[in-house]
Each structure stands twice: as C-alpha cells, then as structure tokens.
Amino acid sequence: MTAAPITVALVDDVDDIRRLVRTALRFRGGFEVVGEASTGAEAIAIATDLRPDIVVLDLGLPDIAGRDVLARVREQSPKTRVVVLSAREPTDRAWFEERTAGYVLKDADLDYLVDLLENVGRTPVDVRVLDVSKDAMAAAKARELLRGTLRDWELWKILDDAALVVTELVTNAVTHGGSTFRLQLSRTSGAFRIEVVDDGSGTPEPQPQDTEAEGGRGIMLVDAMSSSWGVETVPHGKMVWAEIAIS
C-alpha cells in the first residue's frame, strides 16, 4: 500500500499562477489537485464540497476580501490547512500565523512552496496519546484507545489491520521494555500512524518464518499490514512506528 496523495485546491484569479503551481505539484508527486477557483465564492464552495487537505489561497480575489475567504474556508472545512500565496507582505503577520499553515510570496522559489505544502500535508492533524503500564492489560487498553480513535476519526475500515499492528507493537514493548511505555496514534492526510515508545534496548527485526518458533513473527505481521514501519532512537529508549495508508 502507498500513502494517499495530499489533496490541494488552488485559489487564484490568475490562470498562469494556478498552472505553475499545478505543474510543480505534478512534477513533485504525492499531490492531487482536486479543485481550482478564481473567486472567493468558488473557493468556499470547493472547501465545503471537497474538503481538501490544503487550500493554496491568493488574498487578492475580485469578489470577497482574502481574510473573509480564509475565515469561511476554515469554517466550512476545519481540517483543511490554508497556505497563503500572496504578491505582498502581510500588514499583520501575527494574524495570519495564527490562522494559516504558511504565508508565501509569489516571487519565492516554487520549490520552497512545494516543500512547505509537502510538510503541511504530512503533519498530523490529530493525535491521541496513552501512557501504559507494563501489565497483562496493556494490549487491551491500547486496543480500546485505538477503537475509540478510529470511531472518532471515521476510519473503521482499517480497524482490523490497525488492531493487529497495535497489538504486536505493544506486545513488543511489554516484552522488551521497562515498567511503562507510550502509545501515540496520529493521522495525516494520507496515513494513520502508530508509535510505541519504550526504554528497551533491543530493536525488532523480521524473523524467518518458523512454524515451531514461539515468537519472533510479530514484526513480520506489522510489515505485512502496514505501508511502512521503522525504528528510531529517542532519549532513554526507542520508538517503533508503523503507518497504514488511508484515503
């Protein structure tokens, strides 16, 4: 499985600007332009109907003031991030920093804009955290948080795969970690991410299939059920993570 593309709506009354950004996103890959608008009214309609991950917004639209468009887009699609692409510096940068994911001038390098959109699109929009004691109920507590999270985020279709991954990563932490560990669940535009942080010293590795072995196959299941996974060193321990693609 591969991560779903970052969905983008382009809002600018200059066709050439939209074309340049659209082309840059296509060459970079990992993006899908789901809508384009040349007026504020069209931008609000796109945000309402399509709920893209990101709206790239020009403030100088012919019908509605840029600040009003921004406010309406965020009202109609709260999860949508807005990146302003403007011809001039803001008179009140603090106001925009509180309400947008970025402010880029039109004379900036296109790669800078695309890098920003990529970072914004892959940054988690929701996070749930659980500190778990190392006991017989650890996996059950983790699955309870998982079920509630997937229900709230309307991601029921990945429950079976996610439950297996959570169970295996938590079991690994219980087996090889200390007295407590941390489970973190998050989602970006294209992936549901599971992280387990413990203070154990070992790093999990896929083991060859062996029908007589009592353990060692868990990480192979994680590898099969997830689109990607890995191990990172963190202060006082390690983090094992896995991502499941969502759309």
Rank of each mutant, 00 (worst) to 15 (best):
V14L: 09
D15Y: 09
D16N: 02
I17A: 10
R18E: 08
R18V: 01
R19H: 08
V21W: 13
V21M: 09
V21I: 15
T23I: 09
L25A: 13
R26S: 04
F27A: 13
F27N: 12
R28E: 15
G29V: 15
G29R: 12
G30C: 10
G30P: 10
E32A: 15
G35H: 14
E36W: 08
A37P: 05
A37V: 13
G40T: 00
G40F: 08
A43H: 09
I44S: 03
I46S: 01
A47L: 08
T48G: 10
D49S: 11
V56Y: 04
V56W: 05
L57V: 08
L57P: 04
D58T: 09
D58Q: 07
D58Y: 11
L59F: 03
D63N: 06
A65T: 05
A65G: 14
D68W: 01
L70W: 02
R74V: 06
E75T: 14
S77L: 04
V83F: 03
V83T: 03
V84R: 01
V84L: 03
L85G: 00
S86V: 12
S86H: 14
A87F: 05
E89S: 07
P90T: 01
T91N: 08
T91D: 02
D92A: 11
D92Y: 11
A94P: 00
A94R: 07
E97Y: 00
E98I: 02
R99Y: 01
T100V: 04
Y103R: 07
V104S: 02
D107W: 06
A108R: 15
D109I: 08
L110A: 06
V114D: 00
V114A: 03
V114G: 02
D115V: 08
E118D: 13
V120R: 07
V120I: 13
G121E: 10
R122D: 15
T123W: 10
T123V: 13
R128M: 00
V129H: 04
